[in-house]
Nucleic acid binder design. Structure first.
Lengths: 196, 196
DNA sequence: TTTTATTAATTGAACGTTCAATAAAAATAA
DNA sequence: TTATTTTTATTGAACGTTCAATTAATAAAA
């Protein structure tokens, strides 16, 4: 079996299997056995590539976060207007679901766990602050600094709130799309309200 | 030691200890030992009063939910205006923290777990729908039915979103109070926007 | 004494980690 | 090419730990 250069392949296999297992069973019931079984690999391989279960969990979170970041960056061009940029931010955040339906439950599990895990909390904070700073810089081009900060805070809360309630009520794709539209409309009303 | 009529006392002791343990260690690391130790009781008592760990977990969630409900009901009087009622709803929801600082982490843990636990998901849904229906009925007295439904959805998302982001960033009491004020201002702007 | 409340000890299953063994590919030598 | 050695990738059984649940014993109250 052994071919050279399997490392990146195996790492991705295990990360995918982790997302799948956490989505299906929850973080609590996710074991190295449930992961390795889904990956079609042995349990020992986890320690070999990630140093242990905890290392794999963290790598999985990092993967989800960088994915979210790239999802946004790849869409933005020099000609993107502030309004368009705000819409793209919303789309990227709701696409946490659209691209893979099983990632939503995973996000929620990791958020909860981040309250009791220093490493995960650090990663979570980076992500949360990036969303806010992206929003602030976009709003600042449309209104005063103070208004922009307020608008960004409300917008971030609205995105997370709509997303959270959709996940918790096990919404389908259509309901998610509806929430995404609500978030966009909300941004428009913020611009109208505070816009210079 | 044994006195008669200890059941309600012990039950509450164990529920309090569960909240405390989940807040400190997370749901994952909460064991019948960590709970019973915090309660100053033996681990066997959990099975005696709750049939097992799962029974205690569910009883704890039920306790938190009924508490939230009572928090709201006890404030509402026949003379409460719709605007006042909306403010009370927000206060009750943010008071999930104010009354006890360790309950916030507990809420988040239980939300995440509800994605993989049928019983918890049922309880969570009841609560989520009650918030929404409370909001809808209040808004309906201030605007048209369709506008009220929309306002309620946005308001529920804003409450949960602000609350979630405050919890995840480990905000202090002051920052929570600030978020509560943002939520109230948001309700006011909804009324101005859609109000008849 | 009988009942009720509680503890402390015990059980067996499940967990993450470790590690010696193995199997296949790659590299080298013939 | 073919044979041999070395490296890389992977396995799965064994180990020690931890957990929830159960059990028998104990202590106080009725």
């Amino acid at each position: 079996m052994p071919k050279v250069g399997m490392e990146p392949v195996r790492r991705q296999q295990l990360i995918d299997a982790t997302i799948s297992s956490v989505a299906e069973f929850g973080l609590q019931a996710t074991t190295i056995n449930s992961i390795s079984k889904k990956a079609g690999l042995s349990s020992g391989i986890i320690s070999h590539y990630f140093g242990g279960k905890q290392g794999l969990i963290e790598a999985t979170v990092r993967y989800l976060l960088t994915n979210l970041k790239h999802e946004l960056i790849k869409q933005v061009t020099p000609t993107t207007t502030p309004e368009q940029r705000l819409m793209l931010i919303i789309e990227a955040n709701f696409a946490r679901l659209q691209q893979r339906s099983d990632t939503t439950k995973t996000w929620l599990s990791f958020w909860a766990q981040s309250m009791h895990d220093v490493q995960l909390h650090r990663l979570q904070n980076v992500n949360s602050r990036r969303l806010l700073s992206n929003l602030v810089s976009s709003f600042k081009q449309l209104m005063g600094d103070d208004e922009a900060k307020l608008a960004a805070q409300l917008c971030a809360a609205m995105i997370d709130g709509l997303w959270l309630r959709a996940v918790l009520s096990k919404s389908d794709q259509d309901q998610f799309a509806h929430c995404e539209q609500l978030a966009k409309n909300f941004v428009c009303s913020l611009i109208k309200q505070y816009g210079a």
